[in-house]
Design a protein around this nucleic acid. Structure first.
Lengths: 226, 226
DNA sequence: CGCTGCGTTGAGCTTCTTCAACGATCGTGG
DNA sequence: CCACGATCGTTGAAGAAGCTCAACGCAGCG
Protein backbone atom coordinates (compact mmCIF):
# COMPACT_ATOMS: atom_id res chain seq x y z
CA UNK A 1 0.00 0.00 0.00
CA UNK A 2 1.50 3.27 -1.11
CA UNK A 3 0.18 5.06 1.96
CA UNK A 4 2.62 3.16 4.11
CA UNK A 5 5.59 4.09 1.98
CA UNK A 6 4.52 7.71 2.20
CA UNK A 7 4.30 7.56 5.98
CA UNK A 8 7.82 6.22 6.13
CA UNK A 9 9.10 9.22 4.24
CA UNK A 10 7.61 11.75 6.63
CA UNK A 11 10.43 13.05 8.86
CA UNK A 12 8.03 13.55 11.75
CA UNK A 13 7.43 9.81 11.86
CA UNK A 14 11.03 8.75 11.48
CA UNK A 15 12.15 6.14 13.96
CA UNK A 16 8.82 4.45 14.55
CA UNK A 17 8.76 0.69 14.77
CA UNK A 18 6.83 -1.28 12.14
CA UNK A 19 4.07 -1.92 14.67
CA UNK A 20 3.82 1.78 15.36
CA UNK A 21 3.51 2.52 11.69
CA UNK A 22 0.63 0.09 11.64
CA UNK A 23 -0.96 1.82 14.60
CA UNK A 24 -0.52 5.11 12.87
CA UNK A 25 -2.06 3.83 9.67
CA UNK A 26 -5.06 2.69 11.70
CA UNK A 27 -5.89 6.07 13.14
CA UNK A 28 -5.44 8.36 10.16
CA UNK A 29 -7.92 9.35 7.51
CA UNK A 30 -7.31 10.65 4.00
CA UNK A 31 -8.70 13.91 2.69
CA UNK A 32 -8.60 15.63 -0.68
CA UNK A 33 -9.07 19.29 -1.47
CA UNK A 34 -9.48 21.26 -4.66
CA UNK A 35 -7.56 24.41 -5.51
CA UNK A 36 -8.77 27.23 -3.32
CA UNK A 37 -10.69 24.98 -0.99
CA UNK A 38 -10.67 25.78 2.71
CA UNK A 39 -9.26 23.05 4.94
CA UNK A 40 -10.16 24.74 8.18
CA UNK A 41 -10.97 28.23 9.36
CA UNK A 42 -9.59 30.18 12.27
CA UNK A 43 -11.58 29.31 15.34
CA UNK A 44 -12.56 25.82 14.20
CA UNK A 45 -12.09 23.21 16.83
CA UNK A 46 -8.70 21.53 16.53
CA UNK A 47 -9.47 17.83 16.75
CA UNK A 48 -6.27 16.73 15.09
CA UNK A 49 -3.56 17.71 12.68
CA UNK A 50 -2.59 17.14 9.06
CA UNK A 51 0.27 16.04 6.88
CA UNK A 52 0.44 17.11 3.25
CA UNK A 53 0.62 14.15 0.91
CA UNK A 54 0.43 16.03 -2.38
CA UNK A 55 -0.04 19.64 -3.30
CA UNK A 56 0.48 22.90 -1.45
CA UNK A 57 -1.29 24.32 1.57
CA UNK A 58 -1.17 27.83 2.99
CA UNK A 59 -1.75 28.80 6.62
CA UNK A 60 -2.84 32.41 6.92
CA UNK A 61 -4.45 35.15 8.94
CA UNK A 62 -7.03 37.62 7.71
CA UNK A 63 -7.73 41.16 8.84
CA UNK A 64 -11.22 42.59 8.99
CA UNK A 65 -10.60 44.53 5.79
CA UNK A 66 -9.63 41.30 4.07
CA UNK A 67 -5.88 41.71 3.96
CA UNK A 68 -4.07 38.41 4.25
CA UNK A 69 -0.81 37.42 5.90
CA UNK A 70 0.50 33.97 5.05
CA UNK A 71 2.22 32.34 7.99
CA UNK A 72 3.45 29.24 6.25
CA UNK A 73 3.24 27.29 3.04
CA UNK A 74 3.53 23.55 3.34
CA UNK A 75 4.30 20.92 0.74
CA UNK A 76 4.45 17.10 0.67
CA UNK A 77 5.69 15.45 3.84
CA UNK A 78 5.15 18.48 6.05
CA UNK A 79 2.75 18.43 8.99
CA UNK A 80 0.56 21.41 9.81
CA UNK A 81 -1.74 22.52 12.60
CA UNK A 82 0.15 20.33 15.04
CA UNK A 83 0.20 23.01 17.69
CA UNK A 84 -3.56 22.96 18.14
CA UNK A 85 -3.29 19.33 19.22
CA UNK A 86 -1.24 20.18 22.27
CA UNK A 87 -3.09 23.27 23.34
CA UNK A 88 -6.48 21.66 23.27
CA UNK A 89 -7.91 24.71 21.66
CA UNK A 90 -9.15 25.93 18.32
CA UNK A 91 -7.07 26.61 15.23
CA UNK A 92 -5.43 30.03 15.45
CA UNK A 93 -5.37 30.58 11.67
CA UNK A 94 -6.96 29.56 8.38
CA UNK A 95 -5.75 26.80 6.06
CA UNK A 96 -6.44 26.57 2.34
CA UNK A 97 -5.22 24.36 -0.49
CA UNK A 98 -3.28 26.40 -3.05
CA UNK A 99 -3.49 23.56 -5.55
CA UNK A 100 -5.33 20.30 -5.77
CA UNK A 101 -4.02 18.63 -2.65
CA UNK A 102 -4.22 15.46 -0.65
CA UNK A 103 -3.62 15.25 3.08
CA UNK A 104 -3.74 12.75 5.86
CA UNK A 105 -5.53 13.69 9.04
CA UNK A 106 -4.36 12.42 12.43
CA UNK A 107 -6.96 12.67 15.19
CA UNK A 108 -5.78 14.20 18.39
CA UNK A 109 -6.66 11.67 21.03
CA UNK A 110 -5.17 8.66 19.28
CA UNK A 111 -2.04 10.58 18.41
CA UNK A 112 -1.51 11.68 21.98
CA UNK A 113 -1.70 8.08 23.10
CA UNK A 114 0.79 7.14 20.43
CA UNK A 115 3.20 9.86 21.43
CA UNK A 116 3.02 9.08 25.12
CA UNK A 117 4.33 5.61 24.51
CA UNK A 118 6.99 6.71 22.10
CA UNK A 119 9.74 9.09 23.16
CA UNK A 120 11.26 9.21 19.68
CA UNK A 121 8.02 10.51 18.24
CA UNK A 122 7.82 13.06 21.04
CA UNK A 123 11.32 14.24 20.26
CA UNK A 124 10.49 14.50 16.56
CA UNK A 125 7.47 16.58 17.36
CA UNK A 126 9.46 18.81 19.70
CA UNK A 127 12.00 19.34 16.94
CA UNK A 128 9.25 20.16 14.44
CA UNK A 129 7.65 22.71 16.73
CA UNK A 130 11.02 24.23 17.52
CA UNK A 131 11.71 24.64 13.85
CA UNK A 132 8.37 26.35 13.34
CA UNK A 133 9.18 28.67 16.18
CA UNK A 134 12.47 29.58 14.59
CA UNK A 135 10.80 30.29 11.27
CA UNK A 136 8.23 32.47 12.95
CA UNK A 137 10.95 34.38 14.74
CA UNK A 138 12.55 34.95 11.37
CA UNK A 139 9.29 36.17 9.87
CA UNK A 140 8.78 38.56 12.77
CA UNK A 141 12.27 39.88 12.29
CA UNK A 142 11.63 40.44 8.61
CA UNK A 143 8.30 42.17 9.14
CA UNK A 144 9.55 44.43 11.86
CA UNK A 145 13.17 45.15 11.02
CA UNK A 146 13.44 44.92 7.25
CA UNK A 147 11.89 46.96 4.49
CA UNK A 148 10.11 45.19 1.70
CA UNK A 149 13.07 45.17 -0.72
CA UNK A 150 15.14 43.46 1.94
CA UNK A 151 12.47 40.81 2.46
CA UNK A 152 12.24 40.19 -1.26
CA UNK A 153 16.00 39.85 -1.58
CA UNK A 154 16.17 37.52 1.40
CA UNK A 155 13.40 35.38 -0.01
CA UNK A 156 15.05 35.08 -3.40
CA UNK A 157 18.27 33.97 -1.75
CA UNK A 158 16.32 31.51 0.36
CA UNK A 159 14.70 30.06 -2.73
CA UNK A 160 18.10 29.81 -4.33
CA UNK A 161 19.46 27.68 -1.50
CA UNK A 162 16.31 25.57 -1.56
CA UNK A 163 16.87 24.92 -5.24
CA UNK A 164 20.46 23.79 -5.11
CA UNK A 165 22.09 27.21 -5.05
CA UNK A 166 21.07 27.79 -8.60
CA UNK A 167 21.12 31.35 -9.90
CA UNK A 168 17.81 30.88 -11.62
CA UNK A 169 15.01 30.30 -9.17
CA UNK A 170 11.47 29.26 -9.87
CA UNK A 171 8.61 30.64 -7.83
CA UNK A 172 6.37 27.82 -6.72
CA UNK A 173 3.56 30.21 -5.88
CA UNK A 174 1.95 33.17 -7.62
CA UNK A 175 3.17 36.67 -7.00
CA UNK A 176 0.06 37.65 -5.15
CA UNK A 177 0.68 34.80 -2.73
CA UNK A 178 4.31 35.74 -2.46
CA UNK A 179 3.36 39.29 -1.60
CA UNK A 180 1.12 38.01 1.17
CA UNK A 181 3.89 35.77 2.45
CA UNK A 182 6.27 38.73 2.60
CA UNK A 183 3.80 40.95 4.39
CA UNK A 184 3.03 43.30 1.53
CA UNK A 185 0.69 43.63 -1.45
CA UNK A 186 1.07 42.59 -5.10
CA UNK A 187 1.53 46.18 -6.34
CA UNK A 188 4.44 46.82 -4.04
CA UNK A 189 6.07 43.50 -4.83
CA UNK A 190 5.74 44.16 -8.53
CA UNK A 191 7.35 47.58 -8.20
CA UNK A 192 10.22 46.23 -6.17
CA UNK A 193 10.94 43.40 -8.55
CA UNK A 194 11.14 45.81 -11.46
CA UNK A 195 13.32 48.13 -9.42
CA UNK A 196 15.67 45.26 -8.59
CA UNK A 197 15.76 44.38 -12.27
CA UNK A 198 16.49 47.98 -13.24
CA UNK A 199 19.42 47.98 -10.84
CA UNK A 200 20.81 44.85 -12.44
CA UNK A 201 20.40 42.68 -9.36
CA UNK A 202 17.97 40.25 -10.94
CA UNK A 203 16.13 39.60 -14.15
CA UNK A 204 12.55 38.49 -13.99
CA UNK A 205 10.51 36.55 -16.52
CA UNK A 206 7.22 35.35 -15.18
CA UNK A 207 7.76 32.86 -12.39
CA UNK A 208 11.41 32.51 -13.34
CA UNK A 209 13.82 34.87 -11.66
CA UNK A 210 17.55 35.01 -12.30
CA UNK A 211 19.96 36.28 -9.71
CA UNK A 212 22.48 38.53 -11.42
CA UNK A 213 24.21 40.12 -8.43
CA UNK A 214 24.19 37.83 -5.44
CA UNK A 215 26.32 40.12 -3.29
CA UNK A 216 24.03 43.03 -3.99
CA UNK A 217 21.01 40.98 -2.95
CA UNK A 218 22.76 39.87 0.22
CA UNK A 219 23.50 43.46 1.13
CA UNK A 220 19.84 44.31 0.62
CA UNK A 221 18.72 41.32 2.67
CA UNK A 222 20.94 42.48 5.53
CA UNK A 223 19.38 45.91 5.63
CA UNK A 224 21.32 48.04 3.15
CA UNK A 225 19.32 50.74 1.48
CA UNK A 226 18.44 50.36 -2.15
CA UNK B 1 15.49 24.16 50.31
CA UNK B 2 13.55 26.92 48.65
CA UNK B 3 14.78 25.91 45.22
CA UNK B 4 12.69 22.79 45.37
CA UNK B 5 9.53 24.65 46.23
CA UNK B 6 10.18 26.94 43.30
CA UNK B 7 10.60 24.02 40.93
CA UNK B 8 7.28 22.62 42.04
CA UNK B 9 5.56 25.84 41.08
CA UNK B 10 6.85 25.83 37.51
CA UNK B 11 4.03 24.66 35.23
CA UNK B 12 6.49 23.08 32.83
CA UNK B 13 7.54 20.66 35.55
CA UNK B 14 4.09 19.85 36.81
CA UNK B 15 3.42 16.17 37.21
CA UNK B 16 6.95 15.03 37.95
CA UNK B 17 7.47 12.45 40.64
CA UNK B 18 9.49 13.40 43.74
CA UNK B 19 12.43 11.39 42.43
CA UNK B 20 12.27 13.27 39.16
CA UNK B 21 12.29 16.57 40.97
CA UNK B 22 15.43 15.37 42.69
CA UNK B 23 16.97 14.44 39.36
CA UNK B 24 16.04 17.81 38.02
CA UNK B 25 17.55 19.58 40.98
CA UNK B 26 20.75 17.68 40.35
CA UNK B 27 21.24 18.85 36.81
CA UNK B 28 20.37 22.51 37.05
CA UNK B 29 22.56 25.45 37.88
CA UNK B 30 21.63 28.86 39.22
CA UNK B 31 22.55 32.10 37.55
CA UNK B 32 22.08 35.75 38.44
CA UNK B 33 22.07 38.76 36.16
CA UNK B 34 22.08 42.47 36.74
CA UNK B 35 19.77 44.92 35.04
CA UNK B 36 20.73 45.23 31.40
CA UNK B 37 23.03 42.24 31.46
CA UNK B 38 23.11 39.97 28.43
CA UNK B 39 22.15 36.37 29.12
CA UNK B 40 23.03 35.12 25.68
CA UNK B 41 23.47 36.57 22.22
CA UNK B 42 22.03 35.47 18.92
CA UNK B 43 24.28 32.81 17.47
CA UNK B 44 25.59 31.57 20.81
CA UNK B 45 25.58 27.83 21.10
CA UNK B 46 22.40 26.58 22.74
CA UNK B 47 23.60 24.13 25.35
CA UNK B 48 20.48 24.28 27.45
CA UNK B 49 17.54 26.41 28.42
CA UNK B 50 16.46 28.66 31.27
CA UNK B 51 13.64 29.27 33.67
CA UNK B 52 13.14 32.68 35.26
CA UNK B 53 13.21 32.54 39.03
CA UNK B 54 13.01 36.25 39.74
CA UNK B 55 12.99 39.31 37.58
CA UNK B 56 12.17 39.96 33.93
CA UNK B 57 13.92 38.80 30.79
CA UNK B 58 13.46 39.97 27.21
CA UNK B 59 14.12 37.93 24.08
CA UNK B 60 14.79 40.15 21.10
CA UNK B 61 16.17 40.59 17.62
CA UNK B 62 18.37 43.43 16.42
CA UNK B 63 18.72 44.93 12.97
CA UNK B 64 22.01 46.16 11.60
CA UNK B 65 20.99 49.75 12.26
CA UNK B 66 20.31 48.83 15.87
CA UNK B 67 16.54 48.74 15.84
CA UNK B 68 15.15 46.20 18.23
CA UNK B 69 12.13 43.91 18.10
CA UNK B 70 11.19 42.20 21.32
CA UNK B 71 9.83 38.71 20.72
CA UNK B 72 8.90 37.89 24.28
CA UNK B 73 9.17 39.07 27.84
CA UNK B 74 9.33 36.40 30.49
CA UNK B 75 8.75 36.57 34.22
CA UNK B 76 9.05 34.15 37.16
CA UNK B 77 8.16 30.56 36.40
CA UNK B 78 8.46 30.90 32.64
CA UNK B 79 11.00 28.92 30.64
CA UNK B 80 12.86 30.48 27.72
CA UNK B 81 15.17 29.36 24.95
CA UNK B 82 13.68 25.89 25.09
CA UNK B 83 13.45 25.62 21.33
CA UNK B 84 17.22 25.68 20.87
CA UNK B 85 17.43 22.51 22.94
CA UNK B 86 15.46 20.50 20.42
CA UNK B 87 16.99 21.90 17.28
CA UNK B 88 20.55 21.31 18.35
CA UNK B 89 21.52 24.67 17.02
CA UNK B 90 22.41 28.12 18.21
CA UNK B 91 20.10 30.65 19.82
CA UNK B 92 18.10 32.48 17.19
CA UNK B 93 17.77 35.68 19.25
CA UNK B 94 19.28 37.69 22.08
CA UNK B 95 18.30 37.53 25.74
CA UNK B 96 18.81 40.27 28.30
CA UNK B 97 17.71 40.84 31.89
CA UNK B 98 15.41 43.86 32.13
CA UNK B 99 15.82 43.94 35.89
CA UNK B 100 18.02 42.22 38.41
CA UNK B 101 17.08 38.63 37.69
CA UNK B 102 17.76 35.11 38.78
CA UNK B 103 17.38 32.08 36.56
CA UNK B 104 17.95 28.38 36.61
CA UNK B 105 19.77 26.80 33.72
CA UNK B 106 18.94 23.29 32.53
CA UNK B 107 21.64 21.67 30.41
CA UNK B 108 20.46 20.11 27.23
CA UNK B 109 21.76 16.59 27.39
CA UNK B 110 20.55 15.80 30.88
CA UNK B 111 17.18 17.32 30.17
CA UNK B 112 16.69 15.28 27.03
CA UNK B 113 17.37 12.13 29.03
CA UNK B 114 14.87 13.25 31.61
CA UNK B 115 12.21 13.98 29.03
CA UNK B 116 12.67 10.69 27.21
CA UNK B 117 11.75 8.77 30.32
CA UNK B 118 8.86 11.00 31.20
CA UNK B 119 5.92 11.40 28.85
CA UNK B 120 4.21 13.94 31.10
CA UNK B 121 7.20 16.24 30.88
CA UNK B 122 7.26 15.80 27.12
CA UNK B 123 3.61 16.73 26.91
CA UNK B 124 4.19 19.80 29.10
CA UNK B 125 6.99 20.88 26.82
CA UNK B 126 4.87 20.33 23.73
CA UNK B 127 2.15 22.44 25.25
CA UNK B 128 4.64 25.17 26.11
CA UNK B 129 6.06 25.29 22.60
CA UNK B 130 2.58 25.27 21.12
CA UNK B 131 1.64 28.22 23.23
CA UNK B 132 4.73 30.12 22.09
CA UNK B 133 3.81 29.36 18.53
CA UNK B 134 0.35 30.76 19.05
CA UNK B 135 1.74 33.91 20.60
CA UNK B 136 4.12 34.35 17.70
CA UNK B 137 1.29 33.92 15.24
CA UNK B 138 -0.54 36.64 17.10
CA UNK B 139 2.47 38.94 16.98
CA UNK B 140 2.85 38.36 13.26
CA UNK B 141 -0.79 39.17 12.76
CA UNK B 142 -0.42 42.38 14.71
CA UNK B 143 2.70 43.49 12.88
CA UNK B 144 1.34 42.75 9.46
CA UNK B 145 -2.37 43.41 9.66
CA UNK B 146 -2.82 46.09 12.32
CA UNK B 147 -1.64 49.64 12.51
CA UNK B 148 0.17 50.82 15.57
CA UNK B 149 -2.89 52.30 17.34
CA UNK B 150 -4.60 48.93 17.00
CA UNK B 151 -1.62 47.16 18.52
CA UNK B 152 -1.52 49.59 21.42
CA UNK B 153 -5.22 49.17 22.08
CA UNK B 154 -4.96 45.39 21.91
CA UNK B 155 -2.04 45.40 24.30
CA UNK B 156 -3.80 47.58 26.82
CA UNK B 157 -6.79 45.25 26.76
CA UNK B 158 -4.45 42.29 27.13
CA UNK B 159 -2.83 43.87 30.16
CA UNK B 160 -6.25 44.52 31.59
CA UNK B 161 -7.22 40.86 31.42
CA UNK B 162 -3.84 39.90 32.87
CA UNK B 163 -4.51 42.19 35.80
CA UNK B 164 -7.93 40.96 36.77
CA UNK B 165 -9.94 42.93 34.24
CA UNK B 166 -9.18 46.11 36.07
CA UNK B 167 -9.71 49.38 34.24
CA UNK B 168 -6.46 50.75 35.52
CA UNK B 169 -3.50 48.85 34.19
CA UNK B 170 0.11 49.12 35.23
CA UNK B 171 2.88 48.81 32.71
CA UNK B 172 5.49 46.40 33.97
CA UNK B 173 8.04 47.64 31.47
CA UNK B 174 9.21 51.05 30.30
CA UNK B 175 7.62 52.70 27.32
CA UNK B 176 10.70 52.29 25.18
CA UNK B 177 10.53 48.55 25.79
CA UNK B 178 6.82 48.55 25.12
CA UNK B 179 7.39 50.29 21.81
CA UNK B 180 9.91 47.63 20.84
CA UNK B 181 7.50 44.91 21.86
CA UNK B 182 4.78 46.42 19.66
CA UNK B 183 7.05 46.78 16.67
CA UNK B 184 7.39 50.56 16.73
CA UNK B 185 9.55 53.27 18.28
CA UNK B 186 9.11 55.33 21.46
CA UNK B 187 8.18 58.52 19.58
CA UNK B 188 5.33 56.87 17.76
CA UNK B 189 4.05 55.14 20.88
CA UNK B 190 4.12 58.39 22.79
CA UNK B 191 2.14 60.17 20.09
CA UNK B 192 -0.44 57.43 19.93
CA UNK B 193 -0.95 57.31 23.68
CA UNK B 194 -1.58 61.03 23.77
CA UNK B 195 -3.93 60.76 20.81
CA UNK B 196 -5.87 58.01 22.56
CA UNK B 197 -6.03 60.19 25.64
CA UNK B 198 -7.22 63.16 23.60
CA UNK B 199 -10.02 61.02 22.19
CA UNK B 200 -11.11 60.04 25.67
CA UNK B 201 -10.30 56.37 25.28
CA UNK B 202 -7.69 56.28 28.01
CA UNK B 203 -5.93 58.48 30.50
CA UNK B 204 -2.25 58.06 31.04
CA UNK B 205 -0.12 58.95 34.03
CA UNK B 206 3.36 57.55 33.86
CA UNK B 207 3.26 53.77 33.96
CA UNK B 208 -0.37 53.85 35.07
CA UNK B 209 -2.98 53.81 32.31
CA UNK B 210 -6.70 53.95 32.83
CA UNK B 211 -9.14 52.55 30.31
CA UNK B 212 -11.99 54.99 29.87
CA UNK B 213 -13.74 53.56 26.82
CA UNK B 214 -13.29 49.83 26.59
CA UNK B 215 -15.56 49.44 23.57
CA UNK B 216 -13.67 52.10 21.71
CA UNK B 217 -10.40 50.35 22.40
CA UNK B 218 -11.84 47.05 21.25
CA UNK B 219 -12.94 48.59 17.99
CA UNK B 220 -9.45 49.94 17.47
CA UNK B 221 -7.88 46.59 18.33
CA UNK B 222 -10.05 44.93 15.71
CA UNK B 223 -8.90 47.24 12.96
CA UNK B 224 -11.17 50.27 13.08
CA UNK B 225 -9.57 53.50 12.00
CA UNK B 226 -8.81 56.11 14.59
C1' DC C 1 24.82 69.23 41.60
C1' DG C 2 25.41 67.61 37.18
C1' DC C 3 24.77 63.54 34.40
C1' DT C 4 22.42 60.07 32.14
C1' DG C 5 18.39 57.61 30.69
C1' DC C 6 13.67 58.12 29.58
C1' DG C 7 9.75 60.24 27.70
C1' DT C 8 7.63 63.90 24.90
C1' DT C 9 6.91 67.06 21.06
C1' DG C 10 7.70 69.17 16.47
C1' DA C 11 8.96 69.24 11.43
C1' DG C 12 10.18 66.92 7.35
C1' DC C 13 10.60 62.97 4.73
C1' DT C 14 10.52 58.10 3.20
C1' DT C 15 8.03 54.10 2.42
C1' DC C 16 4.22 51.78 1.54
C1' DT C 17 -0.62 51.50 0.58
C1' DT C 18 -4.76 52.88 -1.85
C1' DC C 19 -7.35 53.63 -5.86
C1' DA C 20 -7.78 53.23 -10.65
C1' DA C 21 -6.89 51.66 -15.17
C1' DC C 22 -5.00 48.49 -18.28
C1' DG C 23 -2.71 44.27 -20.60
C1' DA C 24 -1.85 39.42 -20.42
C1' DT C 25 -3.00 34.82 -19.49
C1' DC C 26 -5.77 30.89 -18.82
C1' DG C 27 -9.66 27.91 -18.56
C1' DT C 28 -14.28 27.31 -20.11
C1' DG C 29 -18.22 27.08 -22.80
C1' DG C 30 -20.30 28.13 -27.06
C1' DC D 1 -11.39 26.97 -32.54
C1' DC D 2 -12.59 31.22 -30.96
C1' DA D 3 -14.71 34.29 -27.72
C1' DC D 4 -15.44 35.35 -23.24
C1' DG D 5 -14.82 36.27 -18.42
C1' DA D 6 -12.05 35.87 -14.50
C1' DT D 7 -7.85 36.03 -12.36
C1' DC D 8 -3.36 37.80 -12.23
C1' DG D 9 0.21 41.01 -12.85
C1' DT D 10 1.78 45.68 -13.96
C1' DT D 11 1.90 50.71 -13.88
C1' DG D 12 0.62 55.50 -12.50
C1' DA D 13 -0.76 59.15 -9.26
C1' DA D 14 -2.06 60.51 -4.78
C1' DG D 15 -2.35 59.94 0.06
C1' DA D 16 -1.47 58.17 4.75
C1' DA D 17 1.22 56.09 8.22
C1' DG D 18 5.18 55.86 10.57
C1' DC D 19 10.17 56.90 10.84
C1' DT D 20 14.23 60.11 11.31
C1' DC D 21 16.34 63.91 13.23
C1' DA D 22 16.49 67.35 16.63
C1' DA D 23 15.40 69.70 20.76
C1' DC D 24 13.68 69.79 25.32
C1' DG D 25 11.83 68.54 30.16
C1' DC D 26 12.15 65.60 33.81
C1' DA D 27 13.45 62.19 37.21
C1' DG D 28 16.69 59.25 39.46
C1' DC D 29 21.19 58.55 40.99
C1' DG D 30 25.89 58.86 41.71
Amino acid sequence: MELMSFLKQVPLFAGLSPEQYDELAMIITLQDYGRGQTIFAEGDEGTGFYVVREGLVKIYKLSLEGKEQILHIFGPGEPFAEAAVFMGSSFPAHAMALEKSRTIFIPRRAFIELIKGNPALAMNMLATLSLRLKKFAHLIEDLSLKEVPGRVAAHLLYLSTQQGDSDTVKLNIGKAQLASLLGTIPETLSRILSKLAKQGLISSEGTQITILDRDGLEDLAMGEKL
